[in-house]
Amino acid sequence: MPGIVSSALRRLLHGALVLAAVSVLVFLLMQLAPGSYYARMRLNPQLSPRTVAALEAAQGMRAPLPVRYWRWLRSVAAGRWGYSFAYNAPVWPLVRTRVAHTLWLTLTALLLAWMVALPLGMWSAWRRGHWDSRAIAGGASLLLALPDVVLALALLALALRTGWFPVGGMHTLGSRHWDRWAQLRDFAWHLCLPVTVLVAGMLPTLVRHVRAAMAEALDAPYIAAARGHGIGEWRLVFGQALPVAANPMLSLLGLSFGALLSGSLVVEVILGWPGLGPLLWRAILDRDPYVVVAAVMLSAALLVGGNMLADLGLAWTDPRLATRGAAAASRSEAP
C-alpha cells in the first residue's frame, strides 16, 4: 500500500510541475502575441494617450514580465486569478460561473458519448466482418468527416425553422419563477442541441478506439482458450475481454477530460451557450490576457487531473501495472 500512496504523491508533484510550466509558457506566449488591450484603446480618438498610459501603468502592464508573473501568482493565491480589463473585474468570479455552465454541457456530452460508444464499439468488435459491424464503422467515418460547425449550423437552422428547440441560452426567460421540475426540464431542453453536436463530435473517435481495443482483446489466445473451456460468449466479452480492453479505453477517457473546457468552444459560440467559450473568444479578440491565462490553466489542470484519474484506473484494472509501480517503489525504498 505505501507504494501506491508514494506513487500517487509523486504523480501529484509531477502534475503541479506541469501546471507551473504551462503557466510560464502561457505568459510568454501572451507576451509574444502582437497587440495588447491598451494598443487597441489607443486607437480610440476619445481617449488621450496619457489616459491610456496611466491606465496601463495602473494595471501594472508596464512592469517587466517576471514581475507581472509574480503578481499574477499572488493574485492566484488570493483567489482572484488576475484582473479582466474588458470587464473591469477580477477574473475568477467572471470565469467561475461560466466554467460551471460549460462543465454541465461537456460532462453531459462526455457521459452520453461513452454510454453510446461503449456498447456500439463492443458490438462492432464482436460482430467483426458482419454487416452491422460495417454499418457502425461506416457511420462513425461519416460522423468523423462531418465538421462540428456544419452540424451545429444545421441544427440551429432546424431549431429556427421548426421552433422545436431553443436557439440559444441555458434557460427560458422568466423560468426562474417556475417550480424546480419545470426548470430542470427547461434546462434539459436547452441542453439538447449543443450536447448533440458535442456527442456527434466525440462519438466516432470513441467508437473506433473501443472497437480496436475490444477486437484486440477478443483476438487474444487466452480468449480462445477460455472459449475452449466452455465459457459463454457473454462472459467472454464482459468478464474476460473487457477488463483487458479497459486499459486503452481508460487512457482515452483521461485525455477526453482535457477537452472538457476547450472542446466545446465553437459549439458554445454558435449555439449561444453562456459558457467559457464565448468569454474566451471575446477575451482573445480583446487581448484580455488574464482571462485567457485562466482558461488555459483550467484546461491544463483538467487534462492533468484526468490523466491522473486514468492512471489510477489503470492501476486498478491492470495488475501488471500495479506490480510494476510497487516494484519501482520498493526499489526506491532500498538503501
Binding site: A220, P221, Y222, I223, A225, A226, R227, G228, H229, G230, I231, G232, Q240, P243, V244, T317, D318, P319, R320
Partner: peptide, 25 residues
C-alpha cells in the same frame, strides 16, 4: 451444445500456458 461440450466433456490444456491465461485476472 458446443459450450456444454467444451470444458465439461472435452477439455484442452494448451501448449503455451502463458498465452492461455488472461493477464488481468
Amino acid at each position: 451444445e458446443w459450450r456444454q461440450l467444451r470444458g465439461a466433456v472435452v477439455a484442452l490444456a494448451h501448449q503455451e500456458p502463458s498465452q492461455a491465461l488472461n493477464p488481468v485476472r
